[in-house]
Amino acid sequence: MKKITKIILLSLVSIFYIGCKKKSVKVSQEEPLNIILMIGDGMGLAQISTAFYFGEKIPNFEQFKNIGFIKTPSTSHTITDSAAGATAFSTGQKTYKRSIGMSKDSLPIPTIIETLQEKGYQSGLVSLTPITHATPGAFYAHVKDRDLHEDIALDLVKSNVDFFAGGGLKYLKHRSDEKDLYAELIAKNYQLDSVKLSKYDINKKNGYLLADEGLPSKTEGRKSFFQDATQLGLDYLTEKEKPFFLMIEGSYIDWGGHAMDAELLKQEVLDFDKTLGLVLKYIKKHPNTLLVVTADHETGGVSIGKSYVIDEKTGERSEEVDNVSINFNNDQHSGTLIPVFAEGRGSENFRGIYENNEIYHKIFKSINNK
């Protein structure tokens, strides 16, 4: 009899434990979802493949199970640019080439940052280029042409972005209109630093502009800025204990394609993958977060092919069976489909093949638990 009573008690404890466990999951599902969008500018499938051939470890890309592809044409050109590509991500609408946060009819469209701010979200931007460049600019600015850096900087001051790190100091401090937007941001309760990634002030918004234009590339000696800025942004936004949207751009993969520079491309992809590993670790500790990794377009028509060695004496060419080469078709953007990788709550929404502006709508589908 005592044995039966003991079994019943153990069963009740197990049921209670399972019930509590289910309840905690339900609460987690009801919490606002953090969003991290990583964009490897110019990063197509071949670029991603270089991480598998030239890295010392298994690439972090291999951790993903939910994978899809996007189609990238803009409304004006079959081959898009970063401005129209990023605007599709940030607004949910396709637009014309060179447009920043504008519709195909040149009208301002609310960006994902502006929409989420109304829902109580924080926002952050990390880039290796000027923070006024096409990709980061598309998430807070509204201008007709991507080269209007000074106008984009004016929108940055209005944007109330909580955290940003990158280059572009000259567009705030050394302007043709002689305005000092750096001082204006400080007056708006920003802590700014143009020297290093100093400790953030939790009671202020924080901005880091560490170069007049862009940061150095990896082949020019850039060290761990990409990982350090990403970690700093995650720490700050997490400590504020409010949901957030963070866009992280690996900018110079695109530059490697334009320069047809295999070493630059390879190093920038490996640096992006290293930063990706850091973000995936964050997701494991903070499961109420959605990570989406993609690119605005591919650059260079890159392929991974056979590698050959030439005999100096005979001039004969022979294949290196253990090596591959990075080949370029040209120095421009291409129209190839772009991979999408997703992890975290709602990541299953990103499977399949769809238009680039659907990234925006799938993010909101995930936020709304659909």
Results as ranks from 00 to 15, higher is better:
Gly68Lys: 03
Lys242Glu: 13
Phe54Ile: 00
Lys94Ser: 06
Ala229Thr: 10
Leu210Cys: 05
Met43Asn: 02
Lys362Phe: 08
Pro59Ile: 01
Gly167His: 01
Leu276Ala: 02
Glu320Ala: 14
Gly352Met: 13
Thr135Pro: 01
Lys281Asp: 15
Leu116Ala: 04
Ile310Gln: 08
Lys188Gln: 13
Ala86Gly: 05
Gly85Ser: 05
Phe54His: 00
Val27Gly: 10
Lys281Gly: 14
Gly257Phe: 09
Asp261Gln: 08
Asp81Glu: 13
Gly315Phe: 11
Val157Gln: 12
Lys3Asn: 15
Asp41Asn: 06
Asp254Tyr: 08
Gln47Ile: 04
Ser366Asp: 05
His133Ala: 09
Ala138Trp: 08
Ala84Asn: 05
Ser307Gly: 05
Ser24Leu: 14
Ala262Gly: 00
Leu185Trp: 04
Asp261His: 05
Thr91Lys: 00
Gln93Ser: 13
Ser123Ala: 12
Ser325Gly: 10
Leu215Ala: 10
Thr78Gly: 09
His333Met: 05
Gly315Lys: 10
Leu291Val: 09
Ile58Asp: 02
Pro110Trp: 04
Glu213Gly: 14
Phe139Thr: 04
Val161Leu: 12
Ala187Met: 07
Pro339Tyr: 08
Ser303Lys: 10
Leu265Trp: 01
Leu116Trp: 05
Ser176Tyr: 11
Lys196Val: 14
Gly44Pro: 01
Asn369Phe: 10
Ile58Arg: 06
Gln191Asn: 15
Ile112Met: 05
Phe328Cys: 00
Gly124Leu: 06
Asn66Trp: 07
Asp228Val: 04
His297Gln: 11
Met43Val: 08
Glu263Val: 12
Leu154Ala: 12
Tyr354Ile: 02
Thr91Asp: 05
Leu234Ile: 03
Asp311Glu: 06
Ala83Val: 07
Phe52Val: 03
Glu56His: 04
Glu31Pro: 04
Asn329Cys: 12
Leu337Cys: 14
Ala51His: 01
Trp255Gly: 00
Gln267Gly: 00
Glu268Tyr: 02
Lys6Leu: 13
Arg175Ile: 01
Glu348Asn: 11
Ile4Met: 14
Gly346Ala: 04
Pro59Arg: 02
Lys119Cys: 03
Leu169Val: 04
Lys188Gly: 04
Asn34Arg: 12
Asn66Gln: 14
Ser366Arg: 03
Thr230Met: 02
Asp147Ser: 11
Ile109His: 06
Tyr96Glu: 08
Lys188Leu: 13
Ser14Pro: 07
Thr230Ser: 13
Gly233Phe: 00
Val293Thr: 03
Phe244Thr: 01
Ile152Glu: 01
Pro339Val: 12
Glu114Asp: 13
Ser303Asp: 14
Tyr53Ile: 06
Ala229Ile: 03
Tyr17Glu: 09
Arg98Gln: 09
Leu148Ala: 10
Glu320Tyr: 15
Lys158Asp: 15
Asp322Val: 09
Leu116Gly: 02
Asp322Asn: 08
Pro59His: 01
Gly166Asp: 11
Gly301Ala: 10
Lys306Asn: 08
Ser14His: 10
Gly55Asn: 00
Lys3His: 14
Ile326Lys: 02
Met38Asp: 03
Asp311Arg: 07
Ala88Gln: 07
Gln267Phe: 02
Ile39Gly: 00
Tyr140Pro: 01
Thr87Asp: 08
Lys179Asp: 15
Lys71Met: 12
Ser318Arg: 15
Phe226Ala: 02
Gly221Thr: 05
Thr115Pro: 07
Asp311Ile: 12
Phe341Leu: 06
Val161Ala: 07
Gln29Ile: 15
Lys57His: 10
Ser307Pro: 00
